[in-house]
Design a protein around this nucleic acid. Structure first.
Lengths: 232, 232
DNA sequence: GACATAACTTGCATGCTATGCAAAGATGCA
DNA sequence: TGCATCTTTGCATAGCATGCAAGTTATGTC
């Protein structure tokens, strides 16, 4: 797995990363081989060389081991969104922010493909994986609102970085805050996340036909045009 | 619960509906009172006056009891979509089809509100509920594709009803078929489902502020316009 | 009305998922 | 080396989920 990312830290941290990596890798391999639903936590733990209890020290849920999203992805997208040129329409700013992130992911082509395979074979896990993105959605909507608030032309490019270190909101904290959000930012964030999902899903179904980039761009072109009926 | 819908059938069917209704009602009430995650299957079953085993005869999963979607909703929306005037743009046809369905749901105002409360308090269940809609999404995408195929002006209004009785596709059957679907129908279906979710969610957060209908219409107006930045 | 059939419910047995707790082991640092 | 801290682990416990066989209840027919 990504052994090189953030190589620093002491032995402890490296071991933790190794254990987590071993668990996810074992999980994905076993899932690819025997089908995702037939893989028990016991099997994953055994393959990774740790106890069942330790598995649950790393993942809240069995299914969480199949959600291969980087926890920092959302933060990077939001920052990129806020740093985009002020005159770029929100939809396009969001498109570019996500495209940049996905370009990185596309480089780990092999792993991504395998992951896609597993998820598509198990809709249940696809849903689970989406839930991870849903958590992002509220924060993403806030970023959109922030971008709109400091409107086009009004915004000083440097002042826009989120209110310093918002320290990893506790899970479900978005529920109350959600009340304060306007409709448009929520809609844009939700639609963008959906667009990414559809792009990935469509591309996974026929990876050889078109580059992912093209699918992604076409999706956002449809959205920007207001989803008119395409030419036959 | 909805005791009147499809009142027919023998005693057996009525009993089944009653049992299912009792289970969902008990579940929602208990969840509203004690928090959704604190409600066990045992408690729900006891409150509904059946055994735990019977609960699992009605729902595959504990969480499924909180998914209050009518199984026929999707079918009605698809039919409505195919029956819409041929010159109506796909996005608007879908909007109207969904609006008609939601108008009915809005009448059971009380239950809908309570359900919304429970789901918003438990994102986990919101996700689960979405998965039910996701199942619809593929079939909805097929309906969109069907509508496009028999293009504007080409379509004989009567010939469009789905290929007779597609007999309740087995769960997950959509995964293979998905390969055959074009990008645009999938995108439109996914975006529309997302739009409904955002509308409902936004409206639930401030039910007194605006009619649901208005929120819904505004969302689709945003989409049809290509999601430009709204005026401040 | 009685009967055979099919459908529904139930309890029991079993296995997987998930959490709390306390003891044992590994790591970091002086 | 030795202490403080973090991690792993086994054990106990509870909830989730399924299969099976036996008991109960509708349905349709004679």
């Amino acid at each position: 797995m990504s052994e090189k990312s953030a190589p620093g830290g002491g032995l402890r941290e490296r071991k933790k990363r190794a254990t987590r990596a071993a668990l996810t890798e074992a999980a994905v391999r076993l899932a690819a081989e025997h089908g995702a639903e037939k893989v028990t936590v016991e099997a994953i733990s055994a393959a990774a060389g740790v106890s069942v209890r330790t598995f649950f020290n790393y993942f809240d849920t069995r299914d969480d081991v199949f959600v291969l999203t980087d926890a920092e992805t959302g933060a990077r997208v939001r920052r990129s969104l806020l740093d985009a040129p002020a005159d770029l329409p929100p939809l396009l700013a969001l498109r570019d922010a996500m495209a940049a992130e996905l370009a990185e992911a596309e480089q780990q082509h092999e792993l991504w493909r395998l992951h896609g395979e597993v998820l598509r074979a198990a809709p249940h896990l696809m849903v689970r994986s989406l839930s991870a993105h849903l958590a992002d959605e509220t924060e993403l909507a806030e970023a959109v609102a922030e971008r709109l608030r400091s409107g086009p032309g009004t915004r000083a490019p440097e002042s826009a970085h989120a209110p310093a270190g918002a320290p990893a909101a506790p899970p479900d904290a978005g529920c109350e805050r959600r009340k304060a959000l306007d409709l448009y930012p929520r809609l844009l964030a939700a639609v963008a996340v959906t667009a990414v999902r559809v792009s990935v899903d469509h591309w996974c179904a026929r990876p050889e036909e078109r580059a992912f980039r093209d699918v992604f761009q076409e999706v956002f072109a449809h959205l920007a045009a207001g989803l008119p009926a395409p030419p036959a």
